[in-house]
Design a protein around this nucleic acid. Sequence first.
DNA 1: CGGTAGGATGGAACCGTTTGCATAAGCATT
DNA 2: AATGCTTATGCAAACGGTTCCATCCTACCG
Lengths: 326, 326
Amino acid sequence: MAATSRDVARACGVSVATVSRAFSEKGSVAEPTRRRILAEAERLGYLPDPAARRLITGRSGNIGLIVPDLANPFFSDTAKGVEREARATRLGLFISDTDEQDRLEPDAVRRICRQVDGLIWASPRNADEVLLQFAGTVPTVLLHRQLEGWWSVSTDLADGMRQALVNLHSLGHRRIAYAGGPEQSWSGQQRLRGLMETSEELGVEIMMLGSFAPNSDGGSMVADVVLSRDVSALIAYNDAIALGALSRLASRGVDVPGDLSIISCDDIAYAKLSAPPLTTVHVPRHEAGAAAVDLLQELMANPDAPPVAKVMATQLVIRGTTAPVA
Amino acid sequence: MAATSRDVARACGVSVATVSRAFSEKGSVAEPTRRRILAEAERLGYLPDPAARRLITGRSGNIGLIVPDLANPFFSDTAKGVEREARATRLGLFISDTDEQDRLEPDAVRRICRQVDGLIWASPRNADEVLLQFAGTVPTVLLHRQLEGWWSVSTDLADGMRQALVNLHSLGHRRIAYAGGPEQSWSGQQRLRGLMETSEELGVEIMMLGSFAPNSDGGSMVADVVLSRDVSALIAYNDAIALGALSRLASRGVDVPGDLSIISCDDIAYAKLSAPPLTTVHVPRHEAGAAAVDLLQELMANPDAPPVAKVMATQLVIRGTTAPVA
DNA sequence: CGGTAGGATGGAACCGTTTGCATAAGCATT
DNA sequence: AATGCTTATGCAAACGGTTCCATCCTACCG
């Protein structure tokens, strides 16, 4: 079917070894010969077979990405960053979505790891032990999470929460609630840490509303719960919760930010389109995805290097859901 | 490093051929032997090398997906449908995003096609000729687009537009504007066709506002343009435009749906969270993605079968941006 | 009881590359 | 002119499976 190196070799009157060398840049091949081979390959539509090449070299030129939910803007933006950087560095990209089910992750890793040179793994909630069982099988960079001894790219959500709380405090808010997300979430723990540390510093107490599904339905529940409490401000786990809450609050006739200020986390595309637009902590998802690819390349080039845990800054973006306390 | 079939064969006292047969289900191997081999493989952590298998069989067990923009909810939902169905049928998934640049698509196809058994290609705008140049290279199913002689999965947007227009008409609207998207878009042409046919039937004229970027910035522009016209209803190319318009209209003090009714297209997750929630034509993106995988499997199993062009129904979802004309 | 059919297994070729080693040619050095 | 070094190229052995074909064994049938 497709042309092979043999075809090109025959057409050029050289051996397949020379054809191979002409394509792999490395070996020395006389310039006129190289040009002749490349021209003939072009004419025949020859490109080296990736599978054959992988078999002998052990490299596939592909990397893998495992995410919990591609339809979640947080992860699709992350995936976009990964994809773009991978493409820029001529790496192919395998993607596996685990439908938010931690127990599917090990299988996803096993299925993917033989086909790639490295893996970017976004596992927000799975137990450390599950990750550890794959230590050493394939060069891996964790995304949106840290783990002792592993390469990782994460974002400084503790600081993001600090910025949020400081801002609310300076607006005069003293009765502040926090609507949390999944409890096992690594990034959730960072949020909590930032919240705790900062509330201690500022001397304000935070009312914990509990754990909610990190989507708009969870947000509707948050809205009803928060109205039953005597607070002037709400910090939400993420934008999806905040947007769901905002929608529910509007239908209950609550004025945001007049009656209640809201700050959330992520800054997804639609955060700026709500009415009022969301005040939220910007999380550089795209950049984190790209950084993960860069780190992975470093790791693949030098598997014995000491692990790097890159942390990217977050930034509070003030929009319309926050106001001075009435 | 990793165990090979030779290792398993040696440990079991059989030949590699038998090990291969034990794993490929096909060939006949005595039940006790098979069990022994599988157990030993498990113990050694052996799994057949996909590259080696591909080299000899010509099958990789992978499919590819090409989309213009993974960060666009329309396509990330589509990708999610593809991923889930691929995973369910044990296919690996390669994804390539072309950053909305048509000229990158040929390269993406070339890069991906040697690594996969089939391709799902979402190319909303590229010229037919560009697609045709890849006819016959790899089994391909077009997504969200049709092309004579090709397998495809698309959604009935012409009918969606009909539903939208009929609904507005029955609410009493007679002065209706349409804010279009990219002009070369295949699905845009379907929308236009549905609009033309139905407006003719109903005897209403539609005011064409031109072509806008299919994102929220485009939507802001649409808002300003539509206010300069004497219309009571707006049909928007997609939800992103509608949400952008809604946000801009709110800041200009326009009451939706009191002063202006809006219907858009897609029904992305955040369509129901705006204030008021969007009336929009639901497009089954997830299901379309899954259907594309099913069709692709049919095509891969039977490459000479006559092409199937599957069209999925759309459905107007009435929410809060439409009301009877004042 | 002999012939044979059929299932289980092994041997070996093959898929399309890369790469270490050998070889040949060309050129400069002495 | 002989030697040695460099450079270009070919040969052939991998890589890790799959599969055709041959062989062996067993069981069945007449």
